[in-house]
Write a protein that binds this DNA or RNA. Structure first.
Lengths: 206, 206
DNA sequence: CAAAGTATACCGGGTAGTGAATATACACAA
DNA sequence: TTGTGTATATTCACTACCCGGTATACTTTG
């Protein structure tokens, strides 16, 4: 589409993103990232202080778009809240069916950096997951779950991240539909009136 | 206790186990394992064809004891099936509260070897998780869940592996109690008579 | 000119894996 | 009992390579 020449820093981030997603963090060398970005290693180190910095910056760059995607999937799905949350799982299952899918980069980071407890990328990853959880919690709260909203959001997160882990291992996206079903049960158990969302815009179907 | 001199191969396996668990697979060098086992690297390569072989052997060695632990935690817990499954999560939470806890080695392997789809260790890891799932499925089946047994077992696995992933990231074991509560809801939703386990031996109720 | 950005070439250290020789244990013959 | 052959088990020293990071000098651009 638009081949806007994209600033060097962003080209590096983009190259790093593709490689990290595909092959993991530790196996991807700085040299490989620099080459993929069409830049020498020295240039990369001009824009990022270290590989660790680059990793954190990479996750930071993924934070917002990732959350936005979840919101879109939720909003575009039809039905009550249980079904709208199910929409997230269904879209995830769809993604997982393409060969290149490699699970959740934020969770994977916590595994790859397991021996570096204070790593800056871990802080970014935790913040991201918390944002998603808080967003879910808000939704349940607005739907009248009251005191159940927070624990319910946590349970959905467990199913969500569980899906990432299990599907990454077994390479069987149908687990995500199983997760969607579990989420639906947990949600409709605790939401009043089967939790149909109040019309936000104008014409929400009644 | 008993300082039986333990065959070399097992000493290597044990050393590898500790290091892999603590620091991950990729970051631990063969040299480090050999040193920890009190053995030269060359003798390590006498007992294992490659590091990849060693990884697979390590997971294989953990398969049986790990499952046995789950079974013990389940059996020792009091109450109906929901509570007995909850016992697994509670024991897990207890483990996770000690500093050295590092999540599930089987799941972590699938992350660390993400760019080696055919790696033998992945096959071992998948088989292990399947064994756990099948064991749960059998339990639910015997409790009368019928057609719901298999999907229910998968949902418990999602919560279980989700717990591993989430707690590893956030370092907050209370998620495991949230998972236990979700599991209890999903189970008692689908088990008849609140799912108290029938005596297995003679008197199976018809 | 000065600052930002890029290129070449390099360093010290760590990696998985190997070659060749040696040590140990045990079977069997004298 | 002693000597010898053989398979198992172990060691030391080594290769060939890859990694994150850097010193220095050059080029572009306001």
């Amino acid at each position: 589409m638009k081949d806007k020449p994209l600033p060097t820093r962003d080209r590096i981030l983009q190259a790093a993103g593709k490689l990290f997603q595909q092959d993991g963090i530790r196996t991807v060398s700085v040299d490989a990232i620099a080459e993929k970005a069409g830049v020498t290693k020295r240039t990369l180190y001009y824009h990022f202080r270290s590989k660790d910095d680059l990793i954190a910056a990479h996750l930071q760059a993924r934070d917002e778009p990732n959350l936005a995607l979840f919101k879109r999937w939720f909003n575009e799905a039809e039905g009550d809240i249980a079904e709208k949350v199910g929409g997230i799982f269904r879209h995830l299952a769809h993604s997982a069916r393409i060969a290149k899918w490699k699970g959740c980069g934020f969770l994977r980071t916590s595994v790859e950096l397991i021996n570096l407890p204070g790593h800056p990328a871990l802080i970014v990853a935790r913040a991201h997951k918390k944002r998603v959880e808080d967003w879910l919690s808000t939704i349940f709260m607005e739907a009248g779950a009251d005191n159940d909203a927070a624990p319910l959001a946590r349970q959905i997160m467990l199913l969500l991240d569980g899906s990432f882990a299990v599907v990454l291992l077994h390479r069987d996206p149908s687990y995500m539909e199983t997760a969607a079903e579990a989420a639906a049960r947990l949600i409709s158990d605790r939401l009043p009136v089967s939790g149909r969302l109040q019309p936000i815009v104008a014409s929400q179907t009644i």
